[in-house]
């Protein structure tokens, strides 16, 4: 090692001391910044609009269920978390428009990966992943959400299902929808 190299090394070491001090200053300064922490159970961080939390089953304004029991969601589900059992609608006991409705609708939330494919598959926009994310269970059985737990309450002005409706009024299972494009 020659003298110049030694001097250059010493100079570099001297400069790196300043870099270290700068690092110390950075951490010290950040002590006085407002913490980014949310005090979780008391303060909840609002989720994004398109956040995919727990599913809900939607209703029409008149109270009829959107779900027609087609089980396309179950077919689309990559985790095989959805179980749908359909039954026939009659005009005396109508649950949803069209021929059939979901008599059993269960989502196993321990299998669900919250990918939202069910949402995409649904022809009636019945299943939607909403913003509920506090999902913890004390047993495996509790993790299976049944239709009663998933379905939203009857909206104002609507009637609970099953409804007794005039004959021929709700024969169309899939509503006319605006072209999303």
């Amino acid at each position: 090692m020659n003298l110049m190299g030694l001097l250059r090394g010493l100079w570099a070491a001297f400069l790196s001391m300043f870099e270290m001090l700068r690092g110390l200053w950075t951490t010290f300064r950040s002590m006085f910044e407002t913490p980014v922490t949310y005090q979780y159970p008391e303060v909840k961080r609002p989720v994004r609009e398109r956040f995919k939390g727990r599913h809900v089953l939607k209703r029409y304004d008149n109270g009829l269920e959107r779900c027609i029991g087609c089980a396309l969601c179950a077919a689309a589900c990559p985790a095989d978390a959805i179980f749908v059992e359909a039954a026939e609608n009659t005009d005396e006991e109508r649950y949803s428009p069209g021929e059939r409705y979901a008599r059993t609708y269960e989502i196993n939330l321990m299998r669900c990966i919250f990918c939202g494919y069910c949402e995409d598959a649904c022809p009636t926009e019945a299943i939607v992943l909403e913003h509920q994310y506090e999902l913890s269970f004390t047993s495996r059985r509790d993790a299976i959400y049944t239709k009663e737990l998933l379905i939203v309450p009857v909206p104002e002005g609507g009637k609970p299902t099953p409804q007794n409706v005039p004959v021929g009024m709700f024969n169309r299972a899939i509503p006319e929808m605006k072209d999303p494009a």
Binding site: F28, S30, E33, P35, V36, Q39
Partner: peptide
């Protein structure tokens, strides 16, 4: 606590 403050946590 100090470490948390330096990482802008609580």
């Amino acid at each position: 606590r100090v470490l948390a403050r330096m990482q802008t946590r609580i």
